[in-house]
Design a protein around this nucleic acid. Sequence first.
DNA 1: GGTAGACCTGGACGC
DNA 2: GCGTCCAGGTCTACC
Length: 299
Amino acid sequence: MSTRLTLRVPSDYVLKRDVCSYGYFHLAPNTWDPARETLARVLDLSDGAATLIVAQPEDVPGAPLRVQVDRGLSRTAQGEAKRALSRMLRLEEEDLGAFHAVDPRWRASGRGRIFRSPTLFEDLVKTVTSCNVAWPSTRMMNRRLCEVINPAFPRPTQMARRRPATLRARCRVGYRDVRLVELAKLAAAGSIDDRWFEDPSNDDDAVYSALLELPGIGPYAASNMLQLLGRYSRLAMDSEAMRHGREVLGMEGTDTQVRRAIEQHYAQFGDHRFRSYWFELWTDHEKHKGPAWTWPVPA
DNA sequence: GGTAGACCTGGACGC
DNA sequence: GCGTCCAGGTCTACC
């Protein structure tokens, strides 16, 4: 027996646009099907794993999502699945008006939501595995973590039990092995308090500082985690940002000079600067490769 | 506070 | 097919 769920979404929500808005839609255990325009995802629910396929059958903004589950779900599990999807799809970010008021370029297209993971821990691991490495390797690491530890993505307790050498040899995470296990141990021990990180009454600087304390998290990763936490006041400055500054914005000079120029350029967007930067970069990719929801699934 | 070098992997390149 | 070089962000040691 299977379960079918219906998910209400904000009136401007477009599944294909808002899922295919950040590279994590191509990282295991997420799978985007460009032909069917559906997101498949294995979730770890309290009564076991379940595979969900999310679609938006009516191709109009705000149309409800249909979620097909590969087995029957209890009421409790249905609630868990909905909460997980809500976090991934940013359904709780109802009002994009403040962002569009600061940067009206995205009002017509409705851009504003950036895809993420069902848990803070998964976002941390995905961010650490995206550091100091080319994108195909990030894809490999996440795929192997799912194949070796848990198809629905490793839970902190599962990863904390693994030896670093196992992660290195079987999941190809390289020198990140110790950092990932330490991160998992902290999460498993409850030392990474999701609610504190997500609490809007804590200011961005405090959250940023706390993120920097975590193993494997440096300035870039902490800034990226901020946006994944719905805090867009910092730019995540990596080589891609530098490339964007030079090639798209025409900035020149040393890395330090370009970095400062990028910071100055996006300061006009205030607390929304990451989104302004990100959608500029993302739409530039789409200008060359077509809409992200049509991109072929990488090998 | 700033900087140099190690860390690990996969891809590009030259032979 | 093999060896070498390079890119990528974090971390530590050192000045």
